[in-house]
């Protein structure tokens, strides 16, 4: 079989290493590497990376954090529908007369106050007639319907008594980092 240049180079390197380093030495170094591995995330390099702000999006550049009845409220980066905050509910509670769905699609939005990305559950309130107030259509990283876990066109009323869509919430799940 014809050997490639890479094969020949690898063989030379291995033979040279074997000639200079003992087997015991190799094992001891490998063992030390294994023991030290859990400490790597604590090193300053990792902490510095964790403190880096999330990369902004076109939505987050114009987002605000004080008015949850406006479409540019930071959590609404992927919302499609009526804001429950305008319908008698809030950003995380359904208006009376409607029922929160236990299912949702998950997006990730950047809070402009700390520039960090948070997971948001877009949860529909169901059972009452459509609220028809504060209708928003934001599509930041929203996916097509064949990727349903990130799609805002599906009526997310699975698990409730009714599929009648009323409004949408944007419930904070946690940091996305």
């Amino acid at each position: 079989m014809q050997r490639s240049d890479l094969d020949k180079w690898s063989e030379r390197l291995t033979r040279r290493l074997a000639g200079r380093v003992s087997r015991r030495s190799m094992l001891s170094r490998f063992g030390a590497l294994l023991v030290a591995a859990p400490l790597f995330p604590l090193l300053p390099v990792q902490r510095a990376r964790a403190a880096e702000p999330a990369q902004g999006t076109d939505f987050s550049r114009a987002a605000q954090t004080h008015d949850d009845t406006a479409c540019n409220y930071w959590r609404y980066c992927g919302i499609d529908g009526n804001l429950c905050s305008c319908c008698g509910g809030s950003v995380h509670s359904c208006p009376p007369g409607s029922q929160p769905s236990p299912t949702s699609w998950i997006g990730s939005c950047i809070n402009p106050d700390d520039q960090r990305a948070y997971l948001i559950a877009y949860r529909d309130c169901c059972g009452a007639n459509e609220c028809n107030k504060c209708s928003c259509l934001n599509t930041d990283h929203a996916m097509p319907i064949y990727r349903p876990q990130a799609n805002n066109h599906i009526i997310w009323c699975f698990g409730t008594n009714s599929f009648e869509y009323h409004c949408s919430m944007a419930v904070l799940v946690g940091l996305a980092e």
């Binding site: 499609d80 319907i145 799609n151 066109h153 599906i154 009526i155 009323c157 599929f163």
Partner: peptide, 10 residues
């Protein structure tokens, strides 16, 4: 059937 906003190819 899927209940969603109108999509031609459902």
């Amino acid at each position: 059937r899927l209940i969603s906003d109108p999509k031609t190819h459902t």
